[in-house]
């Protein structure tokens, strides 16, 4: 198995007050002072709670079943639906990835909410999401550089639960990774534990492209990442 594993500390990541505020829906100029203050406090307290682990496994020669928008990798067959299929159907290898921010951040969030501090509990929840995505950005970048050396490109990352790919396919996805990979397990309803974890696939190949913004392809209009990516794009363009 070609497996790469990584662990990060908070300081390795590029997480800013702005990242959390954008994920909550604000633009950088209209963050209420109290929210700004809470974000700063959460980042300060949350730094030491990060237990970030992640990695990927590269699997060569995936099979693409065009008529059903399916991907077959080893023993697993995925219904990845049209949107994802069309983005990565030319991939000659697949990286199956998973990454977690660890159990401490969601535990802290839950504790605060149970104690009645819903605002800080919510900010910790968003912090966990941003941390795990930022860590996965680093892993994806490492993969990208490695593949450039080999003369191939990588795609965006695609996860069960988005673009029509059912969450129930998490079980098949994790069957391609070593058991308890990075400490991540699945509940019966395919919820990852720790809850602040991500998983999915990245296409690899000479004819594969990375798209700057893919959220408009997905049908989840209220998604946190859609808001985040759209705001980032808007800010870049202004």
């Amino acid at each position: 198995m070609q497996i790469e594993k990584f662990s990060f500390s908070y300081n390795d990541l590029n997480v800013k007050v702005k990242s959390l505020a954008l994920a909550m829906g604000y633009s950088t100029i209209n963050i209420p002072e109290q929210v700004h203050h809470e974000i700063e406090e959460v980042i300060s307290d949350g730094k030491d709670l990060c237990m970030i682990e992640g990695g990927y496994r590269i699997i060569d020669n995936p099979k693409w079943i065009k008529d059903f928008y399916q991907l077959e990798v080893e023993h697993a067959q995925f219904d990845i639906h049209k949107i994802i299929f069309n983005q990565i159907k030319k991939a000659t290898s697949i990286a199956v990835f998973a990454c977690t921010a660890g159990p401490e951040i969601p535990a802290k969030s839950r504790k605060l909410i149970n104690e009645g501090d819903h605002l800080q509990g919510y900010v910790f929840d968003v912090f966990g999401s941003i941390v795990v995505e930022a860590a996965m950005d680093l892993i994806q970048d490492e993969l990208r550089l490695k593949m450039i050396d080999k003369g191939v490109n990588i795609s965006n990352r695609y996860s069960p639960g988005y673009c029509g790919w059912m969450v129930s396919e998490q079980k098949k996805l994790f069957s391609l990774l070593p058991e308890n990979f990075c400490g991540i397990s699945l509940t019966d309803s395919c919820l990852m534990q720790p809850i602040k974890s991500v998983s999915g696939i990245i296409g690899i190949g000479t004819e594969i492209k990375f798209n700057q913004y893919t959220c408009n392809m997905c049908d989840m209009e209220n998604c946190l990442y859609r808001n985040l990516h759209q705001q980032e794009l808007d800010e870049k363009n202004n």
Partner: peptide
């Protein structure tokens, strides 16, 4: 307005 303002 966003979730934080609702919670506040």
């Amino acid at each position: 307005a966003f979730v934080p303002e609702m919670l506040i």
